[in-house]
Design a protein around this nucleic acid. Structure first.
Lengths: 250, 250
DNA sequence: TCCTCGAACATTTCTATAAGATATAAGACA
DNA sequence: TGTCTTATATCTTATAGAAATGTTCGAGGA
């Protein structure tokens, strides 16, 4: 315990502006390391003891920080094994962020086909929701998603170009959040979605192969990175004849 | 600390079948007391110290149990004040379970008008979702909900009659979950909802004063009591022209 | 006498730390 | 090959001090 105790010093600095407890500073420091890519996705963190010695705090404080991170689905803890960076693989995405479930209760992750991929200056709505500057540029993806070869969702995605340089040159995979984390160091930590029932437009109906004017579920999603920066805006039109959006509250 | 330590004994009993940590036993015991109505809604619990002495465990163990309950929105903790039973008042319901938000971002809790109130034998669908016996009876409520005197939701509610004896003789208030807790000792702890976009039926359209066939958001909610018993089934049809359903995930 | 303000105190939750218990995996050994 | 030991990880419980909040009580002025 004769280490530097960098956090206590920081706490004193922050004391004037607003005190933050030690375990929370530890949590923020660890999150920063994750963001910086110090540890790869799915790999184990150093043990509580090692982190405690390295940061100059007690094991219990590290433990409290890790518990908080586990509650945020950032890490996974297993007794006797270790603490692991949560992976953004398909299965996790499916349960955490993909809420469309078949009426039979089965979840199927849809396949995707890119309809259009472009980039340009952000329009007013995109600037507003992504909180980017007036002359900033965005990448736009329009794609069709199918379950069992039946088109179910057509979605328009807008990304700040500054955060995803070179994305347009890559092949767009089915699970976008995976490459956000892998290639661009952006881990999606939370989303909020606005749902509405609308009558389908001509263009969306044509893409989905159904008649215009039919009822559809419109989902406007904004995805935030771990640091709370808007990273993706997604506008989805979903057919809910054989699927529903599942929302569990407690 | 010379108390009875009833929990350790129980732990030993449960050891053969499946061990549960001490703080979790404390949590379950406290939840049982809440369910049994030992403490009224909104009132303070005994202090950590007092509970610890009473239950024969350390303060830290009580603390961990209370923390878990706070994470479940069961109690509210305030430093220097105490720990309080979470209240099922309008404000709390609005934020925890009512997810319909105006497009301007403002939340308005709707007023309600009962259209029909009846009781009878549960049909197959009601038995299925509420998990009640073949000859069990249900109470049915159909009501219209308005925001700023504009009809927005028409909903059909089904309740197991066994859980809510005498409800039909009472006046149905705007906030149902309040009287579930107050008069029948049933606290809603969690809900799960299935959302779909549908074309409105004749009857629902007439109730809402709009044209049949328009798109509407259909919400099928099942509400569970703290013990996980299905307590209410609610089928809502919502107009989402000026409102949206807000879903926040992390 | 009545009212206001403030300091001291009691009570409560929050934070930090430490030690023993439990779970897991890998290597030693018969 | 199978079992036991050992090392290492998280999990559980315990304890002490810090911070926040409410109350009591007395001094001082109108």
């Amino acid at each position: 315990m004769s280490e530097s105790r960098e956090f206590v010093a920081r706490a004193d600095d922050a004391d004037a502006l607003g005190f933050r407890p030690l375990y929370r500073q530890v949590r923020d420091a660890l999150i920063r390391r994750i963001v910086d890519g110090v540890w790869a996705s799915g790999q184990p963190l150093p043990s509580e003891m090692r982190l405690a010695a390295e940061l100059g705090v007690s094991q219990g404080t590290v433990r409290k920080a890790l518990d908080a991170m586990a509650a945020e689905n950032l890490v996974v803890r297993r007794q006797g094994r270790g603490t692991f960076i949560a992976r953004h693989d398909e299965e996790r995405i499916m349960f955490q962020f993909f809420k469309l479930v078949g009426d039979d209760g089965l979840r199927s992750f849809p396949q995707s086909r890119v309809l259009a991929l472009s980039q340009g200056k952000a329009n007013a709505a995109e600037r507003e929701v992504l909180k980017i500057a007036k002359d900033a540029r965005v990448i736009r993806i329009r794609r069709l998603r199918s379950i069992d070869d039946t088109p179910v969702i057509v979605e328009n995605i807008a990304l700040p170009e500054a955060l995803f340089p070179g994305l347009t040159g890559m092949e767009v995979p089915n699970n976008l959040y995976g490459i956000y984390a892998m290639h661009f160091g952006i881990t999606i930590g939370s989303t909020h979605e606005k749902l509405k029932a609308i009558a389908m437009s001509e263009a969306d109906a044509r893409a989905l192969g159904v008649a215009a004017g039919l009822p559809a579920l419109q989902i406007d999603r904004l995805a935030l990175s771990l640091e709370g920066v808007p990273a993706e805006s997604r506008h989805s039109i979903c057919l809910t004849d054989h699927f529903h959006y599942l929302s569990e509250l407690r």
